[in-house]
């Protein structure tokens, strides 16, 4: 039995939903950040699945760029977390709410 495309898409959506749940329920900024990485990866899985099922390289090239953007995002995001921790001594996103008003 060959694995159909829909199985990969189902796995991807489950991983994405777990990531969304993590972003909305966790309070540690770094864990929220890791949940965003999980969501990015589930979308990468979708792109690669479509790419190899349709026989087109475009999806894989897009994943390559998504990885580069994720690396850049990781560097800047963690620098922001360090800067916030230095000022407020916490990374709890419920306590970092000054931008809400």
């Amino acid at each position: 039995m060959e694995i159909p495309l829909s199985y990969y898409l189902c796995l991807s959506v489950v991983l994405f939903v777990v990531g969304v749940a993590g972003v909305l329920t966790r309070r540690n900024a770094i864990v929220v950040f890791m949940c965003i990485e999980l969501m990015l990866n589930s979308v990468n899985l979708t792109l690669i699945a479509f790419s190899s099922f349709l026989g087109s390289i475009t999806g894989q090239a897009l994943v390559f760029f998504a990885m580069a953007v994720a690396a850049a995002e990781a560097a800047v995001g963690l620098a922001i977390v360090i800067a916030i921790y230095r000022n407020k001594r916490t990374v709890d996103i419920d306590k970092i709410n000054i931008l809400k008003w």
Binding site: E2, S52, F53, L54, G55, I57, T58, Q60
Partner: peptide
């Protein structure tokens, strides 16, 4: 698209990715 396309093995190599 219910099965992996026949040319998929040669699609993900360094060579074809580099060309793209």
């Amino acid at each position: 698209g219910t099965t992996i396309s026949a040319g998929a093995e040669s699609l993900g190599t360094v060579e074809s990715m580099g060309e793209a």
